[in-house]
Design a protein around this nucleic acid. Structure first.
Lengths: 306, 306
DNA sequence: CGCTACAATTCATTTTTCGAGAATTCTAGT
DNA sequence: ACTAGAATTCTCGAAAAATGAATTGTAGCG
């Protein structure tokens, strides 16, 4: 074995976390608030950290602090270190029996139709796991997983990132949904104003929304009105009331209470096909709880085939 | 952005480092020595850590401590956390101008003939880098790089590890080296006892040594005597004195002072060809110093071609 | 130009944590 | 039972971190 050479340039986690708080909030005062302490304290620790590293991490100006180059280079390590530390204690606690907390993220649509049976199955098999589900647009889910806030998430593909492991979960057929009175796409195009119908979609970061934008461009409605909704039921309700059109997985519409009040318009495969992926962090230890979750997911593969 | 959920299960670096020291030494007393502190202190911190995690990390018995399952799961994180922390401050300090310390490892043979011009070139271009070179067998070099003790190393291929980035550096032709009086392999086989000549090699972990073992088996000398040397010159000297034979890159023998006193015997390509690889950790930030080193390495590619 | 508001820093003080050393317990081996 | 090696417990002092108040510094404004 190589003799261990002592480079004493290590830095404690708590130091780098106060650093990250200052960087995030852009000021010592707000960081102190966030960390439940006083400014003077934060000042001191930042100064100590800068002394330890030997470079200024922030530029001070009268309205707060901004990162220097060195600070920018350091920042990404804050999250990685925090995630690693958390993962370490989880790994130690995890005796192979799935239990404890498990945070899963999901797109709204997947949560509505695909997850209920899966979660029921999971809870039946692993009742000791305290599962929490959070719905967000795909973009937020990806960062959530990368930053360790979520253990895994269901997102719309394709996704490619070196630090993520991707598992194919479900295949969906997207359909354009309009009010019932429009029996076909042709009728819809004929019956709407030149600029097109209003596009109903979730907020930015949702992959379906981006795809809807594309489709609108191809239909010659580049400047159609946009309307953002926060909930699935709200969206289908608005479509039923002929406020506009939206893009959703066929299964979601079919299972909706308003199913009878809307028409689904099939799209070309390139537009319609979308794969729902389950993503998790690649690095290091996989929680038993997460492992159990994946086993439920793959066991239900027949659902995908069907 | 997802609201940040506060899981307060993080653990400080220093805690986990004392944990690692105890695990490594197998006892609190020795760990305390290594950490330059007293036992009571180590006891307390281990207890605190166990309390924080909520599980016993060690089994106590009268002759020291051994890891529990939880401890075994935690241990790998110790090194990863330490490496990450060190890397963080290096990244912050590194302003793009290569400087500061750079630890490179190398096999003995590569250090002897390939590195001198490379290092000279590197030092001319980046005088601010304090380069340190350490020679070890391939196996130790690989762990050294993985554990962050070395920034990079020259090892005998093939190497495959998910956490390593591999660059092809040099191609060598291995030759069997004997005393001068043996003009050919046939003569050597005829003139040595049934069991074969003595095999001279570096200590365990050296890739060339393993290959020499293979060759001896194929030559029908499975139980030939072995002799371990620590230095290259010593080895060639012993061969010249007809103490035995060894396996070395042709270039090494050609440049040796004892060149005239030994014979080189060519081997079949499958035995002779060996590639020297430069390995570095894959994850995260690459030091400017290391980047500069790599630029020297690839610039000298003509050396490989030649 | 001075005043105000906001923000970081400094400083004196208190609190908490950490480390040292001595005493104690525990256990295997004799 | 005794001893030696090893971990734990306990107390005390020192170092480090947190606190709160006072200070400095700067942009915006009358």
């Amino acid at each position: 074995m190589l003799p261990s050479q002592k480079r004493n340039d290590a830095v404690e986690l708590s130091d780098i976390q106060t650093f990250a708080a200052v960087a995030r909030t852009g000021g010592i005062t707000r960081a102190a608030e966030e960390l439940n302490t006083v400014q003077s304290n934060v000042t001191q620790r930042i100064k100590a950290l800068e002394a330890e590293i030997g470079t200024a991490l922030f530029e001070r100006h009268s309205r707060g602090m901004t990162l220097t180059g060195a600070g920018k280079r350091l920042l990404p390590y804050a999250q990685r270190m925090a995630a690693l530390s958390r993962e370490a204690v989880l790994a130690a606690r995890d005796d192979g029996e799935p239990k404890g907390p498990l945070s899963i993220g999901s797109m709204e649509t997947t949560a509505a139709v695909r997850l209920p049976p899966l979660l029921a199955d999971f809870h039946r098999r692993f009742p000791a796991v305290r599962l929490s589900l959070r719905t967000s647009p795909t973009a937020d889910l990806v960062t959530g997983v990368l930053e360790g806030m979520l253990d895994g998430a269901f997102v719309a593909g394709p996704v490619a990132h070196a630090d993520l492991t991707v598992t194919s979960a479900f295949r969906e057929e997207l359909v354009l949904v309009s009010a019932r009175r429009w029996a076909s796409l042709a009728e819809l195009r004929a019956g709407t104003p030149e600029s097109g119908p209003t596009a109903l979609a979730f907020r930015t970061g949702c992959t379906y929304r981006q795809r809807l934008e594309q489709i609108f461009v191809e239909f010659g409605w580049p400047s159609a009105a946009r309307f953002e909704l926060g909930t699935l039921d709200g969206m289908i309700g608005c479509v039923a009331a002929d406020m506009g059109v939206t893009l959703l997985p066929r299964a979601v519409v079919e299972r909706s209470a308003m199913n009878g009040s809307v028409t689904m318009h099939a799209l070309s495969p390139s537009h319609a096909r979308v794969e729902t992926l389950f993503i998790q962090r690649r690095a290091g230890h996989q929680t038993s709880a997460l492992h159990g979750f994946l086993s439920c997911l793959t066991r239900d593969d027949d659902i995908i085939a069907a």
